[in-house]
Amino acid sequence: MLLRNSLRALAATGLVLGAFTVSAGSASAAGKDAWLTNGEFGLFCFQNQNESVFDLYSSDSNFIDDYFGGSKSCYNQITNDQTESYWNLDTYEWSVHTDWNGGGSDGYLAAGYKGNASFTFKNTISSAYYVN
């Protein structure tokens, strides 16, 4: 994890200039700041990557204490079990899980993948992990 974060810190300095921002916040590949930037994995409260975003820079085993950011209708709502779409702007594959701590059903999203959650994952995602 330390090596991964060190490499990401180096990469982030070059990626911030080309960052895609979704909503208000600070443009940095830091995660959980309501900006989806290169090097992050974003979960959205509505389909087609609409409304508020929850952006991850590193794995999160439990979304119960995480909230959607930005200024859209899902602002400040708990992320747990409220995700309808995602966008992987990371260079790593990510896995999403329907239970905390990587439990339940799991799905894998390749680097660059953007799409809506399937029936299995729509409004049931509770944790996510980067896969190296």
Rank of each mutant, 00 (worst) to 15 (best):
N5T: 14
N5P: 07
N5S: 13
S6F: 10
L7G: 08
L7V: 05
T13I: 01
T13Y: 01
G14E: 04
L15K: 04
V16L: 03
L17N: 12
L17R: 13
F20Y: 10
F20E: 12
V22M: 12
V22C: 15
S23V: 13
A24D: 06
G25C: 05
A27D: 13
A27G: 09
S28C: 05
S28P: 02
A29F: 08
A29G: 09
A30Y: 01
G31T: 06
G31R: 07
D33L: 05
A34R: 14
L36D: 09
L36F: 06
T37S: 10
T37N: 05
G39V: 11
E40L: 03
F41S: 12
L43S: 03
F44V: 08
F44R: 04
Q47G: 01
Q49P: 00
N50V: 07
E51K: 02
V53H: 06
Y57A: 13
S58W: 00
D60M: 12
N62L: 09
N62C: 08
F63E: 03
Y67E: 15
G69N: 15
G69K: 14
G69Q: 13
G70D: 11
S71Y: 02
S73H: 14
N76V: 12
I78F: 00
Q82Y: 10
Q82T: 11
T83R: 07
S85W: 04
W87E: 05
L89P: 02
L89T: 00
D90F: 03
T91Q: 07
Y92H: 03
V96Q: 07
D99G: 06
N101W: 10
N101F: 02
G103S: 05
G107P: 06
G107F: 02
Y108R: 06
L109K: 12
A111R: 10
Y113Q: 02
A117T: 11
A117V: 05
A117L: 15
S118V: 09
F119A: 14
F119E: 15
T120N: 07
N123L: 09
T124D: 11
I125H: 13
I125Y: 09
I125D: 12
S126C: 15
S126F: 14
S127N: 11
A128N: 15
Y129W: 00
Y130V: 06
V131P: 03
